[in-house]
Design a protein around this nucleic acid. Sequence first.
DNA 1: TTGTAGGCGTTATCAG
DNA 2: CTGATAACGCCTACAA
Lengths: 337, 337
Amino acid sequence: MSIGTVSRAFNGNGPIREATRQRVLTTAEALRYVPNSAARTLITRRTMTIGVLLPDLYGEFFSEVIRGIDTAARRLQYHLLVSSSHNDTEEIRAALRAMRGRVDGLIVMSPNIEARTLEANFPPHLPIVLLNCRVEGGAYDSINVDNFGGAHSMTRHLLDAGHRRIAFVRGPRENYDAEERLRGYRAALIEYGLECCPEWEVTGDFTEAGGERAASELLNRHTRPSAVFASNDSTAIGVLSALRAAGSRVPEDVAVAGFDDIPVARYLTPPLTSVGVSITGLGGFATDKLLRAIAERNEHAKQNEILPVRLTVRDSTAARADEPQGSLRSRLSHPAA
Amino acid sequence: MSIGTVSRAFNGNGPIREATRQRVLTTAEALRYVPNSAARTLITRRTMTIGVLLPDLYGEFFSEVIRGIDTAARRLQYHLLVSSSHNDTEEIRAALRAMRGRVDGLIVMSPNIEARTLEANFPPHLPIVLLNCRVEGGAYDSINVDNFGGAHSMTRHLLDAGHRRIAFVRGPRENYDAEERLRGYRAALIEYGLECCPEWEVTGDFTEAGGERAASELLNRHTRPSAVFASNDSTAIGVLSALRAAGSRVPEDVAVAGFDDIPVARYLTPPLTSVGVSITGLGGFATDKLLRAIAERNEHAKQNEILPVRLTVRDSTAARADEPQGSLRSRLSHPAA
DNA sequence: TTGTAGGCGTTATCAG
DNA sequence: CTGATAACGCCTACAA
């Protein structure tokens, strides 16, 4: 039994008789032989691994994305090299370089990355899919959630419920998603003939703690908002927490809305109105796209896709602003009140 | 400039003059040269990568663990190969085999894995750290949260608050953590001279949906519990959601407690009493242990560590069972009630 | 201090 | 259809 035959048995590439192939496979099993992936990578120049670059943020959103990526990647026998928790350019640079030669492609999810950071630190012939990143030039495939449209719909939803004092809790500066959501909020206000007051746009950072701080600040205003639109669900969770601590009822006193529609949203008290896409689906979609690019040796036309979002109305906005004592629905949810 | 010199410049291993080393490094930078990791792995037999095997469960717990692992691994220039979402033995087997030769060690977090599955599918000389797994034999290092002690303390906390009808929402069968927590709950009841009624131990699966179902079931009982101890925080979130939907007030009508103390626990409505360890710390601890084992070529004495947990009392249990209208503290949190 | 050569375990290309 | 052999890019003795 020669070494070349074994290779053919595993690869199914060259010509080999089925009987010998089986024999190789069974004896390999018995000897616990597994082809050395480093040697294989060395000569084929394929690592069968995709890299995932995550930002400093955390929460349910990113773990869901990873689940989606992992599931899609495994179907095609790909592995996942994960590198998380960087936001400043220097850390991203280091992570990119470290991944060089270890991956066949990259999914980048750092919303404030610059295209030239990628170009300068990652082999140019390898495909990259940008997920929720600012898109500059057309050098890379990219997938974005419809941040503008989602924030726009959500704001309209609040306006249609009679709200006129709608506060917006911002995300991190420089975060592309966050800025787009802010734009959508403003656009809806303007469409309804309202002014965008800077004092209704309060600071946040996509974390629960940031949401809590933002809500506390809003509660100290002499005119309080009748609705708070948090730029992501983690922030909304913090807002709900601060409102509860201050004795404000949601949605009777203040409506609260989020963005992303993370799985836990529907289990919050009250269930959180939110807007978003299937998060695992998002990860899977990006992965499929990347794997296709790898298969096509990155010679395809790059494209930027914007995924439509779905608005899910739950109890946290289930009261009309002009009925402060609460709608029937919210009363049913709080019969003890 | 010879190839050997370049190697020495990067490794800092053999003798090399500092001036030439600098010269190599700067020209490498200019040429964007990066040593090929596959070739390096092939000869050094080190991948500089650690594998992480996660179960089918999701939620904030696992993403926090990964953050902790990643941070600790990066400090020593290690990469992370993540494989998630498997629970049945066949999938674990496949994942283990796929990681062979791609990692220098493994962190396993599949609570119902069997030691012989590991032995049979992973190179025996490579170190493995079991995180929250059932420990059989002493073949591997292992780290466990003090599930028994934590559940015991929590149950005592509820008993001390006057509760006598304490329901327990179980985790998945075969899940070691879950079973240990159940044991701790039962032990505390017995210490207080109470019987463990099987009807107070309801089915759950460590998910929000499972918690919701469990709470619904409990609400249909003709004697309702005065406290619900959920075997993890995700379950507790589902319990809170079902109770709210049914109009039960927490903690006035029912106290609710969880396990793990995930970051979101303190932002829930009401803030959730829970018990656990620092989750990122847990991941970092496991990683440090694994990296030490790698450095010592796995020749150290294996040990099993049980990490002490901390009980954090929050509003969800802040009422005495014999004061159904609520304590001062909970009244302050709900001035509108 | 630097250059040279053998080998790590594959795949791929030829002969047989 | 199977066996031999030259890369793949690096590390590490050893020679210069």
